[in-house]
Simulated assay, not measured.
Amino acid sequence: MQEKIIELRKLKLLFVEDEDDLINIITDTLNKLEANFLTAQNGQEALEIIEANDDLDAVITDINMPILNGLEMIQILKEKKPDLPIIVMSAHTEIEYIDKAKEFGVKDYLLKPFDFMKFIELITSMELKKDVT
C-alpha cells in the first residue's frame, strides 16, 4: 500500500462534495497522506477550479449538490476537457445517476460511504495523463 500512496502523491486531484462532514474526512485523510488535492462544494465552483488548474489529473465528484449538480458538471466538463478522468462518488440508492454519468463517458465510480482503500486502489490503477509508476 505504501507504493500506492507514493503514486497518489504524484497526482493533483479535485474532490467535489457538498457535505461538510465528508469533505472534512477526505481533507484530513489526504493531508495525512501528503496528497496534492483541491476541493469544491458544487459543480460551478469545480468548473472554475478546473479552468484555473490545467494540471489536474482527475476529478472525484458527488452527484447531488446545490447550484450545479455533478451530472450537469460532468456534461459541461466532457465538452471542455474530454480527456480529464472523472470518478463519481454516489450512494447505493443513486445507481440511476451512475448510469447517466456512464452515458457522459464516466468509467469509474465509488459507492458511499467513501472507502479510502478502494479509492487509492482505483486512482492508482487508472490510466491518467501523468505516469504514476
Rank of each mutant, 00 (worst) to 15 (best):
D108N: 15
P113C: 12
K100I: 03
E94N: 10
E96K: 14
K102W: 01
Y109I: 00
G105P: 03
I98C: 03
K102Q: 14
D83Y: 08
D83G: 11
K100M: 12
Y109N: 03
D99K: 14
E94P: 06
H92V: 14
F104S: 12
I86L: 07
A91L: 07
I98Q: 07
Y109Q: 00
H92P: 03
D99C: 05
S90M: 03
E94G: 05
L111S: 05
E103G: 07
K102Y: 06
V106L: 10
A91N: 05
V88D: 00
D83K: 13
I98K: 06
V88K: 02
A91G: 15
E96T: 12
K100R: 14
F114V: 10
D83H: 13
F104A: 11
T93G: 15
K112M: 13
I95E: 10
A91R: 03
F114L: 13
D108V: 08
I95K: 06
I87Y: 04
T93P: 02
K112W: 08
I87G: 01
K100G: 00
E94I: 09
P113F: 11
Y109E: 04
I87F: 05
K107E: 14
K100Y: 07
V106Y: 10
E96D: 15
V88E: 01
K112F: 11
I87L: 05
D99V: 00
L111N: 04
G105R: 07
P113Q: 09
S90P: 04
S90V: 11
L84C: 00
V88N: 01
G105K: 05
I87H: 06
D108Q: 10
E94A: 15
I98V: 15
I98M: 04
E94K: 10
G105F: 14
Y97V: 01
L110P: 00
I86F: 08
H92D: 14
F114H: 05
K100E: 13
F104P: 02
I95Q: 09
K112V: 10
I98N: 01
L110Y: 04
H92L: 14
P113R: 09
V88M: 05
A101P: 03
E96P: 06
D83S: 12
P85K: 05
A101K: 02
P113M: 08
I87W: 04
P85Q: 08
I86S: 00
K107A: 13
G105N: 08
L111P: 01
D99N: 13
V106D: 00
I86K: 04
L110V: 11
A101D: 03
L111W: 02
E103F: 10
I86M: 06
I86P: 02
S90A: 13
P113I: 12
E96A: 14
K107S: 12
L110Q: 06
Y109H: 14
D108S: 14
T93E: 07
S90R: 02
F104T: 12
P113V: 11
I95Y: 13
I98E: 06
E94F: 03
L111D: 07
A91I: 12
E96Y: 10
M89Y: 07
H92A: 15
L110M: 07
I86G: 04
T93K: 03
E96F: 08
E103D: 11
L84R: 05
Y109W: 09
S90F: 00
K102I: 08
I95W: 08
K100W: 04
Y97L: 07
D99E: 11
D108H: 15
K102H: 10
Y109V: 00
S90K: 04
K112L: 07
D83N: 15
L110N: 01
